[in-house]
């Protein structure tokens, strides 16, 4: 928890634009540099900034530890599910062309969904790591 008004105002102003930029990097990876890994880290950075300035408890009120864990699992599951769906549609595992039957749209949708899964896992893992480290310290300080 930081009482300095400069930190608090700057963090409040920056929070949304950082997430916006992360989403841009996430969904623009087909055309420019970027993708799930980078976007995941950027979005996690926004939440970490929030937690650094407003405290870990405030951060956990946005995304609770339980939700965080489920997000980690969900990201990997989404990725794997795309592979299973493409198999169910008659293609090979992770053969995106089989998703819609055409190369253009199938690859596009496949890559977009898969990258979303990557982004979700990376965001939540980074956030969980930060809270694990910072929370551990806070607990020891309380003892």
């Amino acid at each position: 928890m930081n009482q300095n008004p400069v930190f608090r105002v700057v963090a409040k102003i920056l929070f949304a634009p950082i997430i916006m930029f992360g989403l841009y990097v996430q969904f623009h990876g087909d055309f420019g540099p970027g993708g799930g890994f980078q976007a995941g880290v950027i979005i996690a950075a926004a939440f970490i900034l929030h937690a650094l300035v407003f405290g870990l408890q405030a951060g956990r009120q946005i995304i609770s530890a339980r939700v965080n864990l489920w997000m980690m699992v969900l990201g990997v599951t989404i990725y794997g599910a795309v592979g299973i769906v493409s198999m169910a549609k008659g293609g090979l595992f992770l053969d995106y062309t089989a998703l819609t039957g055409s190369v253009g749209s199938g690859q596009h949708i496949g890559i977009l969904v898969v990258e979303f899964g990557v982004g979700l896992t990376v965001t939540s893992v980074m956030l969980a790591l930060f809270h694990a480290f910072a929370g551990f310290v806070e607990d020891r300080a309380n003892d």
């Binding site: 890994f37 496949g110 990557v118």
Partner: peptide, 22 residues
């Protein structure tokens, strides 16, 4: 129809690798 080759290699041609990374 995806101009960024890095993304196609990462997510499509080597999608299995990236699943492993995730």
């Amino acid at each position: 129809h995806i101009p960024n080759v890095v993304t196609t290699v990462l997510a499509s041609y080597r999608g299995f690798d990236t699943l492993g990374e995730t």
